Simulated assay, not measured.
Amino acid sequence: MNIPLRIRNLIKRHDTNDPYKIAKELGITVLAVELPERTYGIFKRVLGRKYVLVNDSLPEGIQRFIVAHELGHFLMHPGYSYYRMENRGYYASTKKEEEADQFALLLLKNNM
């Protein structure tokens, strides 16, 4: 999977590297909500609608990273729906989590 190419195309298509703006243009609602302490973020589809829930107790910069991470899952891993947690558990695909982390880092690192 060529993540840098995906990032370049995504930024070109949306004219931004802001994960919040990209999510909005993709029809994904981002909500900062109270989540269990060690749950950082969740991507869910509910009745055809797409949501990213991010833990509202996290610092703003971490929330931004989590939104970018979950956006990476949405774009690269259709059907993959796990929670983003500190100290990931056995249920999560390490490869998919690493790809989403790389996606988030490259998206946020790219200056517009």
Rank of each mutant, 00 (worst) to 15 (best):
V30N: 01
T16Y: 05
K21C: 03
I22A: 04
I28E: 06
F74C: 02
D15I: 10
L5C: 04
F65K: 00
K24S: 13
N111L: 13
R84H: 14
E70N: 00
H77M: 09
K24I: 06
Q102G: 00
G89E: 09
Y83I: 07
L5I: 12
A100M: 02
K24F: 07
R38D: 12
L31W: 02
I62V: 15
G61R: 14
L5E: 15
K95L: 13
H77L: 04
A23Y: 01
L71G: 00
I3S: 03
K21I: 10
L35A: 10
V30D: 01
H14M: 10
E98S: 12
R38H: 13
R64F: 08
V30F: 07
V46F: 13
M85F: 00
T39D: 12
V46P: 04
N17Q: 12
R13D: 13
S57R: 15
N9P: 03
T16L: 06
A104W: 01
L47T: 11
E97Q: 07
P19W: 01
L5D: 15
R88A: 06
A23V: 03
Y51A: 02
A92Y: 02
G27P: 09
M76S: 04
P36T: 10
F43G: 00
V54S: 06
L31D: 05
T39E: 14
M1K: 13
H73N: 07
D101Y: 10
R64L: 09
L5M: 11
N111F: 12
R13Q: 14
A32I: 00
E99M: 08
Y20P: 06
E34D: 14
Q63D: 04
I22N: 10
Q102T: 08
E97H: 02
V54R: 01
I28S: 07
D101E: 15
L10M: 09
Y51V: 03
R64Q: 13
E98D: 14
A100N: 00
Q102N: 07
M1Y: 11
A68G: 08
G41H: 05
L75H: 05
N9Q: 11
E37C: 06
A92V: 14
Y20Q: 01
I3H: 09
V30A: 05
P78D: 03
R45D: 04
S81G: 08
E37L: 15
K96T: 10
D56C: 12
L106C: 00
K24W: 09
R8T: 11
I7H: 06
D56Y: 09
R8P: 02
G61F: 11
Y90N: 08
T39K: 11
M76D: 01
H69P: 08
T94E: 14
V30G: 03
K50T: 11
V33G: 07
I22K: 03
T94D: 11
S93P: 11
T39M: 11
L53G: 03
N87T: 12
D56V: 11
K24M: 07
F65A: 04
A68P: 01
E98P: 01
E97I: 02
L108T: 03
K96Q: 10
R88K: 12
L105T: 15
L107D: 03
K109L: 15
T94Q: 12
D101K: 09
H69A: 04
L26P: 06
T94W: 07
I62D: 00
E99R: 01
G61A: 15
N55L: 02
Y82N: 13
